[in-house]
């Protein structure tokens, strides 16, 4: 059976057991629920277009690349480049994620992507962020749960970081402030969804303050050009 015929024929509910690194699962998929028991390989749910993927295990790199809609739930940790250039949909990661998460996420009309990380994120989180939400909860640590260069080149969207201290060494294009009740209201739906999915008491999440990172409009990411 060709890949194309298989895709057409494919049932709406799929369960993959004992997954061991198979790549490109669910590329461009819509109208499906794919449950994966095991560890899928790179580029899981690339260009995802409305399907739901539930992984009972860790995932590798480039999950949700250029995702347009749908939902990915990861009962474990994610590798590098999670949600690159994603435009819509939601990704929930129970534990940690690697470097370069949510680079160049963007939003358009009703599409407003969101990534929620339960643990910590590696360096380069939300670089070139153009829209959408990234929420890092740091449930497993006391220090700010992000690495270096968070939000470099950010020009839209917001990054929420659950921490008592602001992250260190933020680039000049980013403003960092303590989240207000109004800010938290905006993300409450995602946090309660995270708490529901992973069965974590929401009070154990909301018991710490959050910092919110926004683009610094006074110091935008741009080069000064001179017509030649």
């Amino acid at each position: 059976m060709t890949n194309y015929a298989y895709k057409l024929d494919c049932p709406e509910k799929i369960i993959i057991n004992g997954c061991l690194g198979a790549r490109y699962i669910g590329a461009g998929a819509s109208n499906k629920v794919i449950t994966i028991n095991g560890i899928p390989g790179n580029a899981l749910g690339a260009y995802l277009d409305g399907a739901e993927i539930i992984v009972n295990g860790n995932v590798q790199d480039a999950v949700g690349d250029t995702m347009n809609g749908g939902r990915i739930i990861i009962n474990g940790s994610a590798g590098d480049v999670l949600g690159y250039a994603m435009r819509g949909g939601e990704i929930f990661v129970k534990d940690n994620c690697g470097y370069r998460t949510g680079i160049h996420m963007k939003e358009y009309k009703e599409k407003r992507p969101c990534i929620v990380i339960g643990g910590s994120a590696g360096s380069f989180l939300g670089e070139y962020l153009a829209g959408g939400l990234i929420i890092v909860l740091g449930l497993n640590r006391d220090e700010p749960p992000v690495g270096n260069f968070t939000g470099t080149g950010m020009h839209g969207g917001r990054i929420f970081i659950r921490s008592e201290k602001p992250p260190k060494a933020l680039p000049a294009q980013v403003l960092c402030r303590r989240a207000t009740d109004m800010d938290l209201k905006d993300i409450h739906a995602y946090i309660s969804e995270f708490s529901r999915i992973f069965e974590i008491d929401i009070n154990d999440i909301l018991n710490k303050s959050f910092y919110v990172l926004t683009p610094n409009e006074k110091n935008p990411y741009k080069l000064l050009y001179t017509e030649n």
Partner: peptide, 14 residues
């Protein structure tokens, strides 16, 4: 969205 800068990073970061 209208008015949002379109920045293409130098490399594909993936």
């Amino acid at each position: 969205p209208e008015g949002s800068a379109a920045i293409s990073p130098a490399p594909h970061h993936d």
